[in-house]
Protein backbone atom coordinates (compact mmCIF):
# COMPACT_ATOMS: atom_id res chain seq x y z
CA UNK A 1 0.00 0.00 0.00
CA UNK A 2 1.23 3.44 -0.92
CA UNK A 3 -0.03 6.74 0.42
CA UNK A 4 -1.51 9.18 -2.01
CA UNK A 5 -3.16 12.60 -1.90
CA UNK A 6 -5.50 13.51 -4.72
CA UNK A 7 -8.01 16.33 -4.99
CA UNK A 8 -11.19 15.22 -6.70
CA UNK A 9 -13.92 17.74 -7.44
CA UNK A 10 -12.38 20.13 -4.95
CA UNK A 11 -12.13 17.64 -2.11
CA UNK A 12 -8.75 16.32 -1.08
CA UNK A 13 -8.51 12.62 -0.38
CA UNK A 14 -5.65 10.86 1.33
CA UNK A 15 -5.60 7.11 0.96
CA UNK A 16 -3.36 4.11 1.06
CA UNK A 17 -3.75 2.29 -2.22
CA UNK A 18 -2.61 -0.75 -4.14
CA UNK A 19 0.08 0.44 -6.53
CA UNK A 20 -1.70 -1.42 -9.32
CA UNK A 21 -4.88 0.63 -8.89
CA UNK A 22 -5.75 2.80 -11.86
CA UNK A 23 -7.03 6.31 -11.43
CA UNK A 24 -10.38 5.02 -12.72
CA UNK A 25 -10.66 2.29 -10.11
CA UNK A 26 -9.47 4.73 -7.46
CA UNK A 27 -12.28 7.11 -8.37
CA UNK A 28 -14.93 4.40 -8.67
CA UNK A 29 -13.99 1.91 -6.00
CA UNK A 30 -11.84 3.76 -3.48
CA UNK A 31 -13.86 6.97 -3.49
CA UNK A 32 -17.14 5.38 -4.65
CA UNK A 33 -17.67 8.16 -7.16
CA UNK A 34 -19.38 5.90 -9.69
CA UNK A 35 -20.31 8.50 -12.28
CA UNK A 36 -17.10 7.80 -14.20
CA UNK A 37 -17.54 4.62 -16.23
CA UNK A 38 -15.39 1.69 -17.29
CA UNK A 39 -16.20 0.70 -20.85
CA UNK A 40 -13.03 -1.04 -21.97
CA UNK A 41 -10.24 -0.50 -19.40
CA UNK A 42 -7.83 -0.13 -22.34
CA UNK A 43 -8.08 3.53 -23.29
CA UNK A 44 -10.07 2.74 -26.40
CA UNK A 45 -13.58 3.97 -25.58
CA UNK A 46 -13.26 7.16 -23.56
CA UNK A 47 -16.04 6.31 -21.07
CA UNK A 48 -13.58 6.88 -18.23
CA UNK A 49 -12.48 10.35 -19.37
CA UNK A 50 -11.78 12.74 -16.50
CA UNK A 51 -10.04 16.10 -16.34
CA UNK A 52 -6.66 16.16 -14.59
CA UNK A 53 -5.09 19.56 -14.01
CA UNK A 54 -7.21 20.93 -16.83
CA UNK A 55 -6.42 18.22 -19.40
CA UNK A 56 -8.69 15.30 -20.32
CA UNK A 57 -7.25 11.82 -19.94
CA UNK A 58 -8.43 8.23 -20.00
CA UNK A 59 -8.38 7.46 -16.29
CA UNK A 60 -8.19 3.70 -16.98
CA UNK A 61 -4.74 4.13 -18.54
CA UNK A 62 -3.23 5.98 -15.66
CA UNK A 63 -2.14 4.59 -12.32
CA UNK A 64 -3.58 6.45 -9.37
CA UNK A 65 -0.13 6.69 -7.80
CA UNK A 66 1.09 8.85 -10.66
CA UNK A 67 -1.49 11.47 -9.70
CA UNK A 68 -0.22 12.34 -6.24
CA UNK A 69 -1.03 16.01 -5.72
CA UNK A 70 -3.15 16.30 -8.87
CA UNK A 71 -6.52 17.94 -9.23
CA UNK A 72 -9.15 15.78 -10.83
CA UNK A 73 -12.61 16.71 -12.07
CA UNK A 74 -15.18 14.00 -12.76
CA UNK A 75 -18.73 14.26 -14.07
CA UNK A 76 -19.89 14.75 -10.48
CA UNK A 77 -17.78 17.90 -10.30
CA UNK A 78 -18.98 19.64 -13.46
CA UNK A 79 -22.06 21.27 -11.96
CA UNK A 80 -21.78 24.09 -9.45
CA UNK A 81 -24.17 23.01 -6.75
CA UNK A 82 -27.59 22.75 -8.38
CA UNK A 83 -26.42 24.82 -11.35
CA UNK A 84 -25.66 22.45 -14.20
CA UNK A 85 -22.61 23.02 -16.38
CA UNK A 86 -23.80 24.52 -19.69
CA UNK A 87 -22.72 21.30 -21.41
CA UNK A 88 -24.88 19.19 -19.10
CA UNK A 89 -27.87 21.40 -19.90
CA UNK A 90 -27.06 21.26 -23.62
CA UNK A 91 -26.72 17.47 -23.58
CA UNK A 92 -30.24 17.21 -22.15
CA UNK A 93 -31.65 19.81 -24.56
CA UNK A 94 -30.10 18.15 -27.63
CA UNK A 95 -30.71 14.57 -26.45
CA UNK A 96 -26.98 13.95 -26.75
CA UNK A 97 -27.18 10.50 -25.17
CA UNK A 98 -29.38 7.46 -25.04
CA UNK A 99 -28.22 4.78 -22.62
CA UNK A 100 -26.08 7.36 -20.85
CA UNK A 101 -23.14 5.09 -20.14
CA UNK A 102 -20.63 7.02 -22.24
CA UNK A 103 -22.09 10.36 -21.19
CA UNK A 104 -19.87 11.15 -18.18
CA UNK A 105 -16.82 10.65 -20.39
CA UNK A 106 -18.32 12.63 -23.25
CA UNK A 107 -19.08 15.51 -20.89
CA UNK A 108 -15.63 15.60 -19.31
CA UNK A 109 -14.07 15.34 -22.74
CA UNK A 110 -16.24 18.15 -24.05
CA UNK A 111 -15.56 20.36 -21.03
CA UNK A 112 -11.81 20.02 -21.54
CA UNK A 113 -12.27 20.54 -25.27
CA UNK A 114 -13.76 23.98 -24.60
CA UNK A 115 -10.51 24.77 -22.82
CA UNK A 116 -8.51 23.56 -25.81
CA UNK A 117 -10.49 25.92 -28.03
CA UNK A 118 -9.83 28.80 -25.66
CA UNK A 119 -6.12 28.07 -25.71
CA UNK A 120 -6.09 27.69 -29.47
CA UNK A 121 -4.68 24.18 -29.38
CA UNK A 122 -4.79 22.47 -32.77
CA UNK A 123 -6.20 19.05 -33.66
CA UNK A 124 -5.37 16.65 -36.49
CA UNK A 125 -7.83 18.42 -38.78
CA UNK A 126 -7.12 22.02 -37.84
CA UNK A 127 -6.66 24.39 -40.73
CA UNK A 128 -7.94 27.69 -41.92
CA UNK A 129 -10.91 26.14 -43.74
CA UNK A 130 -11.86 23.40 -41.30
CA UNK A 131 -15.55 23.65 -40.43
CA UNK A 132 -16.20 24.09 -36.72
CA UNK A 133 -18.30 20.91 -36.49
CA UNK A 134 -15.49 18.94 -38.10
CA UNK A 135 -13.14 20.16 -35.37
CA UNK A 136 -15.61 18.95 -32.75
CA UNK A 137 -16.10 15.59 -34.47
CA UNK A 138 -12.36 15.00 -34.64
CA UNK A 139 -11.74 16.06 -31.05
CA UNK A 140 -14.62 13.92 -29.75
CA UNK A 141 -13.66 10.79 -31.69
CA UNK A 142 -11.90 9.31 -28.68
CA UNK A 143 -15.26 8.98 -26.95
CA UNK A 144 -17.26 6.11 -28.41
CA UNK A 145 -21.05 6.05 -28.25
CA UNK A 146 -22.68 2.82 -29.36
CA UNK A 147 -26.19 4.22 -29.19
CA UNK A 148 -25.11 6.67 -31.88
CA UNK A 149 -25.74 10.05 -30.29
CA UNK A 150 -22.79 11.61 -32.12
CA UNK A 151 -24.72 14.19 -34.13
CA UNK A 152 -26.52 15.41 -31.05
CA UNK A 153 -23.28 15.48 -29.06
CA UNK A 154 -21.77 17.71 -31.73
CA UNK A 155 -24.88 19.92 -31.71
CA UNK A 156 -24.74 20.27 -27.93
CA UNK A 157 -21.04 21.14 -27.87
CA UNK A 158 -21.37 23.53 -30.80
CA UNK A 159 -24.21 25.32 -29.03
CA UNK A 160 -22.12 25.83 -25.90
CA UNK A 161 -18.86 26.58 -27.70
CA UNK A 162 -20.67 28.97 -30.00
CA UNK A 163 -21.97 30.94 -27.06
CA UNK A 164 -18.53 31.21 -25.61
CA UNK A 165 -16.75 32.21 -28.78
Amino acid sequence: MKAIKITVNGRTHEAGIDSRRTLLDFIRDTLNLTGTKKGCDHGQCGACTVIVNGRRINSCLSLALSHDGDEVTTVEGLAEGDELHPLQRAFIDHDAFQCGFCTPGQLCSAAALLGEFREGLPSAVSGSHTPFVEEIRERMSGNLCRCGAYNHIVDAIAAVAGEKR
Binding site: R28, T74, L84
Partner: peptide, 21 residues
Protein backbone atom coordinates in the same frame (compact mmCIF):
# COMPACT_ATOMS: atom_id res chain seq x y z
CA UNK B 1 -40.04 16.15 -24.16
CA UNK B 2 -36.57 15.97 -22.58
CA UNK B 3 -35.65 12.63 -21.08
CA UNK B 4 -36.93 12.43 -17.52
CA UNK B 5 -33.76 10.54 -16.58
CA UNK B 6 -31.60 13.10 -18.35
CA UNK B 7 -30.52 14.90 -15.19
CA UNK B 8 -29.41 11.63 -13.57
CA UNK B 9 -27.45 10.70 -16.68
CA UNK B 10 -25.58 13.99 -17.09
CA UNK B 11 -24.64 14.22 -13.44
CA UNK B 12 -23.36 10.67 -13.04
CA UNK B 13 -26.16 9.71 -10.68
CA UNK B 14 -27.81 7.04 -12.86
CA UNK B 15 -27.01 3.74 -11.16
CA UNK B 16 -25.86 1.03 -13.56
CA UNK B 17 -25.18 -2.49 -12.32
CA UNK B 18 -21.48 -1.94 -11.59
CA UNK B 19 -22.32 1.22 -9.65
CA UNK B 20 -24.44 -0.64 -7.13
CA UNK B 21 -22.95 -0.47 -3.64
Amino acid sequence: MDRVDGLAKVTGQACYAADYR
